[in-house]
Design a protein around this nucleic acid. Structure first.
Length: 824
DNA sequence: AGCACGCCGACT
DNA sequence: GTCGGCGTGCTC
């Protein structure tokens, strides 16, 4: 603690390469420690919350250092594991440390400076002020400092900056930078007696309220709720609770407070529910699970990572729970990763029933303050209150663990584990393996359809492999039916997107009161609109994609940049008025279902219906309780949700996945179809899966029908080897971005050529991606394939060097270059 | 990321 | 002639 070091290297929450050095004023010297947050100035006016990365005495020679302004913490908020982990992420995924910092910390812990406007009291106007200027000064005279955002709000103007600037020039206001915390403690208002009244006094007061019936009633209710006559110390009574108990307005309560009979007080409220929960203990494992768990333990003896390949509903979760229990007994923390928020709702109940409030959930649908509290809970790791098990999505790998014993990565094949934009472009599965390594912890990968890379690692002995092919409670695997929609189309048998087979099976299921899940990987109403007479299709003005039509708000939306517009009445090309929707999104399927099955209750689960915080939970709950007969959804419905009464699963268009231009398209299609199929048929009887396709003879479709993972794997791994793809080669995608298409192409050609001089045939491209324009910038990709055995660090170093050379060329210096290591 | 600096077009 | 548009480069 006590040290005499003069300088600190600070990580700033900005896309800057490297750390910045600041001097430590004497007053903070004893307080400074690695991992604490400090406030530092940058540039002329901005203040940022930085993290102390190192302390030293090396005075920088070539620039003038600035002072650290304040130290925010008594104890470090970033531990050494995290700092090492950040370093690894930044190195491996070629992103700057500042970007990792931004991704790793809930923003409530990153205080940001905000410009505050302050009234200059001495100001006297010599010229008349404009109306808005007057208004602003009025607002300022009421409260002493106001942010620009709240000024905009108060004046009702979009932008008050010009007026502020003019007031600033006249000397009427002063501007100051304030650092403010986004995190606020949640407070609750409570009520108590104003003072320790004696019984007689209370009697008098009640008597005095004879003519104020409501107030009297309220006071009685308070005495009742606080158990005034029974307990030595009154129970806490919140204002809300009190008001609810007698159904009266706040004004009544206020008058009792004004009469000094009652008083308000506030208490910090924990957002996290830490109340104790009744737990049921462990369920016993069946013999197959017992064998599997023993194999996992054996493998962990000499391997750090084990792949558990278990068919859908083989009871993997129960195995996880037993392994978690073992770690908790050892006093270790466990991280349980899931690919999707939706899944946390189902799993959390099972975990809570065993581990009670030792389980915490972490994902982005929590608001920032809640995330700060979870972060702090893990950081403080107080024995009585701490979460020992964290159930979370991708970003949970950044929580401040200090004693991890096990990381479970469920549905490890899911590509949502890979972050694409913004940087750091990390893969949570791979990063978790490194994190486990740091803690000396073990990693368990679980899935019914392993990623080809993971299965390869298991086959070659890098990971342990444990397979579990028996379904829990001996449920049969579903029957898989393939419907040829090409044939049905030809014979004009299709009812919109539904084949005759699907129609009859749906009718049957509904008659049997069984539920149906339909899977279509397009959200919105129609993927595009098309002009009947000339074929014109409305495109996004900023990106090179057609706009998706959303019926519920009558909007054409770009799924890449979010641009929205009302659909034109006339074709912009030929002027005719016949714009028709083409293709099927989930929204349209929902509508069609209602017209074919007017009795059925239909729910839809996609990005649009699950934006709100509890929307997932609600949909899942409704479906579980059979308040819905049919659930239509995008890939969200495929991911490990467990329902008891699904008789039929329909995959509406298998080809759209198979034809995706990516070397993983077949693997992904297999996984998707196998996973969706796993949703069918649970407890009572064998379920059915119906796959609609134009190519029923496709090898992947056949693999799915036979439920033959290994055959899919074998053919894929052969292809990967032949066409030099992972797991044999490491991929790095280099994307160049610029507003000028000609320039970006020229730069990409130049860059690819200079890379070829070093990497030879390992360089592919430049290639224009299918969507080559996003938000008005043109994109060109270059792909680099490096042998698995050669040093990736060296290749990355060369890449960086070459990128710097490119930037030195005058005309290319505004080209943006991004690396994506292990792209998906 | 934000902000200052600096260089060109449309205005009093 | 100036105001302000955005392109460029720097911030310890």
């Amino acid at each position: 603690m006590n040290n005499n070091l003069n300088f600190a290297d600070i990580i700033l929450p900005l896309p800057l390469a490297g750390v910045y050095t600041y001097s430590i004023p004497d007053e903070f010297k004893n307080q400074m420690a690695i991992g604490k947050r400090v406030v530092v100035p940058l540039g002329t006016k901005k203040l940022y919350t930085g993290i102390v990365q190192a302390l030293h005495n090396n005075a920088p020679a070539d620039y003038k250092v600035k002072d650290i302004l304040s130290c925010l913490d008594d104890f470090p908020v970033i531990n050494n594991f995290q700092l090492k982990f950040w370093d690894w992420i930044s190195q491996y995924y070629q992103s700057v440390l500042g970007d990792v910092y931004k991704a790793a910390i809930p923003s409530g812990l990153k205080l940001e400076s905000q410009t505050k406007i302050i009234l200059n009291e001495e100001f006297v106007a010599d010229n008349a002020l404009s109306k808005t200027e007057d208004q602003i000064l009025n607002i300022l005279s009421k409260s002493k400092d106001v942010s620009i955002a709240s000024l905009n709000q108060a004046t009702g103007l979009k932008n008050t900056l010009p007026q502020i600037k003019s007031l600033l020039d006249k000397g009427a206001v002063v501007i100051e930078e304030h650092i403010s915390s986004g995190y606020k403690e949640k407070k609750q208002e409570f009520v108590s007696l104003h003072s320790n009244f004696t019984e007689e006094e209370i009697g008098e007061i009640l008597n005095g309220l004879k003519r104020a019936k409501k107030q009297q009633e309220l006071l009685y209710s308070y005495l009742n709720l606080s158990k005034h006559y029974f307990e030595e110390k009154p129970e806490k009574v919140s204002s809300n609770e009190l008001l609810k108990s007698v159904d009266c307005s706040r004004a009544i309560l206020k008058s009792l407070v004004d009469k000094n009979i009652l008083k308000f007080y506030f208490e910090k409220l924990d957002r996290l529910d830490l109340s104790s929960i009744n737990t049921t203990g462990l369920k016993e494992l069946n013999p197959h699970q017992e064998i599997a768990i023993n194999e996992i333990r054996d493998n962990f003896e000499h391997k750090n990572c084990v792949l558990l390949h278990g068919v859908t509903s083989s009871g993997k979760t129960e195995i996880y729970i037993h392994l978690i229990e073992e770690q908790l007994k050892l006093g270790k923390q466990v991280l349980y990763l899931l690919p999707e928020i939706a899944l946390t709702t189902q799993i959390i109940n099972r975990l809570k029933s065993v581990f009670g409030n030792k389980v915490g959930v972490y994902h982005s649908k929590f608001n920032d303050s809640e995330r700060v509290e979870i972060y702090n809970n893990v950081l403080e790791n107080k024995t009585d209150k701490a979460y020992q098990v964290i159930l979370g999505v991708r970003s949970s790998v950044f929580l401040p663990f200090n004693n991890l014993g096990l990381i479970i990565i469920d549905e490890e094949h899911e590509n949502t584990y890979k972050q694409f934009d913004p940087a750091p472009r990390y893969h949570a599965r791979d990063a978790a393996l490194y994190l486990a390594n740091l803690h000396g912890a073990k990693t368990l990968l679980g899935t019914a359809t392993p990623a080809v890379e993971s299965y390869y690692n298991a086959q070659t002995g890098k990971y342990g492999l444990v397979e579990l092919f028996k379904r829990y409670q001996e449920i049969e695997m579903p029957e898989i039916i393939v419907a040829d929609i090409k044939e049905a189309r030809r014979r004009k048998m299709m009812k919109s997107i539904f084949s005759p087979e699907l129609m009859s099976h749906m009718t049957e299921s509904l008659e049997n009161k069984e539920q149906i899940i339909l899977f279509q990987n397009r959200r919105g109403y129609a993927p595009y609109l098309e002009c009947k007479s000339c074929g014109w299709v409305p495109h996004c003005p900023n990106c090179s994609v057609s706009l998706t039509y959303h019926r519920h708000n009558n909007l054409l939306v770009c799924h890449y940049c979010g641009h929205g517009m009302t659909p034109p009445n006339n074709c912009e090309h030929c002027g005719s008025s016949g714009l028709e929707d083409r293709g099927f999104g989930t929204e349209k399927i929902e509508e069609e279902l209602l017209s074919y099955f007017p009795e059925a209750k239909v729910g839809r689960m996609d990005l649009d219906t699950t934006r709100k915080k509890n929307a997932y939970e609600k949909l899942i709950y409704q479906f579980e309780k059979h308040e819905l007969d049919i659930l239509v959804g995008t890939q969200m419905v495929s991911k490990g949700l467990d329902f008891d009464n699904v008789g039929l699963v329909g995959i509406l268009n298998a080809d759209s996945m198979l034809n995706y231009p990516d070397f993983r398209a077949y693997e992904r299609s297999f996984q998707m179809m196998a996973q969706v199929s796993g949703r069918a048929g649970r407890k009572k009887k064998r379920g059915k899966v119906l796959i609609q396709t134009y190519t029923p003879e496709h090898e992947i479709i056949k693999n799915v029908v036979k439920n033959d993972y290994f055959e899919m794997y074998s053919s894929q791994i052969a292809e990967r080897k032949e066409y030099i793809y992972p797991p044999f080669y490491r991929l790095i995608n280099i994307s160049l971005k610029h507003k000028n298409q000609r320039l970006v192409n020229e730069a990409a050609n130049y860059f690819a050529n200079s890379l070829r001089k070093i990497f030879g045939i390992r360089v592919f491209g430049p290639q224009s991606p299918v969507i080559n324009r996003i938000q008005n910038s043109f994109i060109v990709n270059i792909l680099l394939k490096i042998e698995k055995k050669s040093s990736p660090a060296k290749a990355k170093w060369i890449l960086n060097q070459q990128a710097n050379f490119l930037k030195e060329i005058e005309k290319f210096k505004s080209i943006q270059i991004n690396f994506d290591v292990d792209p998906m």
